[in-house]
Each structure stands twice: as C-alpha cells, then as structure tokens.
C-alpha cells in the first residue's frame, strides 16, 4: 500500500526571485505510513510549519512533489480540494481562530464546508466533542465563554470533526499548564486509538514526543536531519542538543551517567525504560 503521505525532494522558498528569498525547506523526501504517529521536532525556523502546510496543499512546493495516498495533490483542482479534507491541520494557538456564535457551529464549520448533510454534521460534531471532552451544554455556549483549555479543545474538535485521514497538530500544548498539557495529549492519544488515523504532532517538547510518537522527524536548518523510530532518534542526544533541541530529561540523565563511565544505554527516553536499565545494571533483573 502506498504511504499516506509521501514527499519527494520537496523544496519551498519564500519570496522567490526577490531580494528577500529565504529557503524554508530543501529536498525533503519522507514517507509516512497509514496509522503512524509521527512527532516533528526542530528549532524555531527549522521549517516545521512550512513542511506541514504542504501536506494539505496550503503551500505549493517550488520543486518536488507531495503525494497523498500515492497521488500528486497538485494534479488537479479537485485533488487539492480533497487534500484539504483528507489532511486536517490544527495550527498553533488554534483558539484564536474560533469565530462562530456557538461552540457547536464552530465545530460544524469544517463538515459543513465538506457539503455533508445536517444529520451527518450533527453526528460528527457530537463525536468530535466527545473526543475532546466537551459536554452537550458546552456546545451551546459562545466559544468565548470557555476557559483557555476548553477553547483549545474546541478548536481541535473542529479539525477532528472533518474526520481527516491524517490529523496534523502544530504545538497543541503550547502555553498550557501541566494539567492542560496532559489532558490534550491524552485526548490525542485516545482519538488515535479509536479512529486508527495517522497523527502528526509538531512539538518543542521532547518529553511529549517521547511519550506519544512512534517515529520522530527532526528538521534542522530546512533539512531532514533524522527520521526514524523514537528511541533511535533520541539515542543521538548530543547531535540533537547541538541543533538547539532538548532531549527528554531522562535521556539527559543517562547521557550524564554514560559520561561518568557507567555502562548504560543512552537510548533511554522514558522513566520506565530508565528504571529497567538501572535494574539491569545492578543485576537485579536480567536484560
């Protein structure tokens, strides 16, 4: 089966052929399989947002291709339009984009634009509200009467209600407190388990990526620096730190132990793995 998203030598420039030409991404060739959970990491300006805006045709490549289910999304007008629905993009601070009179109408905006019938819209709005934990009562409120965390969840529901094959979230936990962060990450995990859809999460938080994603894509200076299983990527801690990225705190601890001469693995990225590694080391558990 063709990968759900494939890019071939994707390159994007801003302000092409002007004095201000900047290369945003160069020669990105990646394949994302159906049902995968991919974390995209990279410092500010590394090209993360530019890349994800190609996945649903918001940006057109200057050269190279974007294939969705094996088909070039820029083949025809229809294929671009269908890409918008197949790949749901949830921007950073999406709560600033709420605009309708009620939360219900706001979540219904996407499905309505897809030309769905009222019954189908209703089902989808309620299902999406369920994913993000908004009650029927909250659906009738003005989105502006919700708390910050609720607004964020309402905005995410608006994208989920389109039931895209691929859900892309750009920093969904930015600015939230620890409890809010846990809630949003938990609902994304749940959504993925229930729908089996592909999820792409852009995040500065390596701990979040370590906790949720199966693969990590690292962008550095407009190029793909690494793309592989999460443990493999985090085992390159030192390189990640050179790119201005953090590694999960536990990984940092194990890098430090390794520097001190302890024979530990450095591809440890969760507390549980760290615990097992130390138990192994002290001989209480066989590897």
């Amino acid at each position: 089966m063709a990968p759900v998203i494939k890019t071939v030598n994707l390159t994007h420039l801003y302000g092409e052929k002007t004095l201000f030409e900047v290369t945003a991404i160069i020669n990105v060739s990646i394949e994302i399989e159906k049902g995968e959970f991919v974390g995209i990491i990279g410092h500010t300006g590394s090209g993360k947002s530019t890349l994800i805006q190609h996945f649903n045709g918001l940006l057109k490549p200057n050269s190279g291709k974007v294939l969705l289910d094996g088909k070039d999304i820029w083949e025809s007008r229809e294929s671009v339009r269908s890409a918008r629905f197949k790949v749901g993009l949830c921007f950073q601070y999406p709560e600033y984009q709420l605009f309708e009179e009620t939360v219900y109408k706001d979540i219904a905006f996407g499905p309505k634009n897809m030309g769905l019938g009222d019954d189908e819209i209703n089902t989808r709005v309620r299902r999406a509200a369920g994913y993000v934990g908004l009650s029927g009562e909250q659906l009738e409120k003005s989105p502006f009467d919700l708390s910050g965390g609720e607004k964020r969840r309402a905005a995410i529901a608006g994208v989920m209600a389109m039931e895209p094959e691929v859900l892309v979230l750009d920093e969904p936990t930015a600015g939230l407190d620890p409890r809010g962060r846990d809630t949003v990450l938990g609902l994304i995990k749940e959504y993925r388990e229930q729908t089996g859809s592909t999820v792409i999460l852009v995040s500065h938080s390596m701990d979040d990526v370590a906790r949720l994603a199966s693969k990590a894509l690292v962008l550095n200076k407009s190029e793909v620096a690494m793309f592989g299983p999460v443990d493999e990527v985090f085992s390159h801690g030192r390189e990640l730190m050179k790119m201005g990225l953090n590694v999960p705190e536990v990984t940092r601890i194990f890098m430090g132990l390794r520097d001190r001469g302890l024979p530990v693995s450095t591809s440890v990225y969760t507390c549980e793995q760290g615990r097992r590694e130390l138990l192994r080391l002290s001989g209480e558990v066989s590897p």
Binding site: H43, T44, A174, G175, H204, M206, G244, L245, N246
Partner: peptide, 11 residues
C-alpha cells in the same frame, strides 16, 4: 509573566 511559554528549548 510566562516569558518562555512561546519559545523553543534554545529560546
């Protein structure tokens, strides 16, 4: 007041 909330790790 949360001066680092919108920044990447290096920032």
């Amino acid at each position: 007041d949360e001066p680092t909330a919108m920044l990447d790790p290096r920032g």
